[in-house]
Design a protein around this nucleic acid. Sequence first.
RNA 1: GGAGGGAUGUCCGAAUUGGCUAAGGAGCCGGACUUGAAAUCCGGUGAAGCCGAAAGGUGUGGGGGUUCGAGUCCCCCUCCCUCCGCCA
Length: 423
Amino acid sequence: MLDLNFIRENKKQVQKALDKRFIDDISLAKFSELDQKRRDLLYKNEQLRHKRNITSDKIGELKREGKDASSLIKEMQQVADQIDQYDQKLKEVEEQLEHIVHRIPNVPHEDVPVGEDESDNRLQREWGSPREFDFDFKPHWELGTELDILDFDRGSKVAGSRLTFLKKAGARLERSLFNFMLDLHIKEHGYDEVFPPFLANEESMFGTGQLPKFREDMFKLENTDYYLIPTAEVPVTNMHREEIMSAADLPLKYAAYSACFRAEAGAHGRDTRGIIRQHQFNKVELVNFVDPEKSYDVLEQLTKEAEKVLRLLELPYRVVTLCTGDLTFSAAKTYDLEVWMPAYDTYREVSSCSNFEDFQARRAGIKYRSEPGADSQFVHTLNGSGLAVGRTLAAILENYQNEDGSITVPEVLQPYMDQEIID
RNA sequence: GGAGGGAUGUCCGAAUUGGCUAAGGAGCCGGACUUGAAAUCCGGUGAAGCCGAAAGGUGUGGGGGUUCGAGUCCCCCUCCCUCCGCCA
């Protein structure tokens, strides 16, 4: 969410940001109109309240002295009615205003390339090179099914489409992967480990920006106020919702494993085979709360920390800067990490590292004081996948497959797997 | 699921049958005393936060209601505590 004052004073810049994101259903003219209306109503309302406060004191005084206050009370009855009317008008105007403000996305950082879709993303760097196969390689879903470590049919039977059983070495590999990732970030990158709730409430979903705009992308539990989290970003960022921390607390770095749940409402027919796009998947998420001055340095660092996972797994990948059209609602700048997937003959996203600047912090009320007694200000929040486990597993199956259909276990995972080959 | 109790500043904790400015203490800041410190004493500060250029408004877990006026009365909700039941 953007600051009201910021929008007022930088309408051109905000309009430009909307244009760059190709958003044309938000009217800043309407915003200004409502904003002015609200301020007028507020002023009139507050004057009446002031009058009421003063007169009520006077009534109390008269009553204590045993004098008659009935004419003042009668007068105030009318004032109270007027205040009620203003309150109602104000509420209506504020709701309309919120409807606009809550749907204005973050302003992209100036470094973000302008473009409509992923084809306009900017390549930052590549690491490793795609493996040359001298045999007919297979997609991960065939490898997994033949090795009996992925079971799509039974996943569909028991739950539904996009829900899959991992079995035996497959289940073990999944567990090894997120343990390896957590160990790396906690031991090498200075993160505190967090195991969050997988359910979150409406306020939390609003805080990180999933609501109100993306309601249909999430699963909500029937007859409750709980949502299944689409990422650990939600519970972990909201851990500090409505809190004011001291500068000494920063930076806060949390690494959290969680299952993630996504309705994939707009993805019918996309990636229907394999485990690339599931309703439930595992992910290790890195969340940083930092001093605003440092957030872009931290974004670089965070991205490197996520990349480290791929380097240690020796999977070829590339880093791209998302263009304005591909950037998510709350982010000001995002790097995607994409791993090479032979069966797709392209790179697929396994991590998204974003700086949200103060956008989430404002929605969620996450502040800090630079020194005791100083005015509080919003922190900057960042997060990045470190990494999406299911997609990484798929990448390992495809990249580490052997001609006989067996899988060589990446070296760093062998201590976790207690085996060198899956066959 | 059932019964009861609770939520007021940074912390502890008051506030009569609704009415003046939401006590008091701890803390924090300044000073006195002291070689220095502690202790003590004096003074100050303190109700976050939010809106507002300011005046002012709002603000006693959250939301609503009654009232000229609500920490106080009524309704709903959340969280915490105790006990019973159930459960991994």
